[in-house]
Amino acid sequence: MKILRAAIPMLLAAATFTSCGSATEKTVSTDGSTSMEKVIGYLSEAYMADNSDVKVTYNPTGSGSGIQAVQEGRCDIGLSSRSLKDEEKADLNETVVAIDGIAVIVNPANSVTDVTLDEIAQIYKGEITNWNELGGSDAPIVCIGREAASGTRDGFESVTGTEDSCKYAQELTSTGDVVQTVSSNPNAIGYASLASVSDSVTAVSVEGVAPTNDTILNGNYKVQRNFVLVTPKNKELSDEAQKFYDFCMSGSADEYIIKAGAVPVEK
């Protein structure tokens, strides 16, 4: 699948290349986080609409591979849904392009509306198993999560420190499924990107802070992670890549970032 997804833009690029017969087709290649697929998709589409001679490609390989690809010069801009490690910062720059807020959601019938990060971790590790331990009704807690490869799950588990130790009742394959399941089960708790949370579920506040664009932006809401553009330190971006990078960082990119369900950072 991955190979296929990578191959299609390449083939398309090749096809346009030959059909136009022009050698001036310019490409900007991005590589990395699968969670950023929507954000980068909206941004590159918008950019290509205004700059029809430029092709922005995206290779969904995962944050680690994307960072490596920049280091090895195999792509122009790397995409990472985690901050760079110190040793990576030695030869790479990171710029936060958007923030992804992960809402912790419960059924509207649930009386629990505030939890701490620690309580979330205990719930998902199976140490807290009844809502009455959190001041709710006497009912077992049903933990809903995402499948192992999900970027949201990765983000949620790394923020709450529950990597590989979650005891899920259900592992669903889409955000919509999670919202639907939580809305139909009064005992359920789940997590989903803030943008996909609808009225049918309640997003609880974490450590007393409700998830909104503002609290995500100022960092008060804890269950969040950065979407980062990774660029090399020792080498200048190509003109086209620099232009695309500038576009992503400009105020006009905000509406597309919001459309993609993430929160734009202050520019």
């Binding site: 077992p140 807690i141 009742a169 089960n185 005992n187």
Partner: peptide
């Protein structure tokens, strides 16, 4: 079916 199973058998989760 999932919600019905949950209610009929009084389970925390019907899936």
């Amino acid at each position: 079916i999932v919600p019905t199973v949950r209610e009929v058998f009084d389970l925390p989760d019907g899936a």
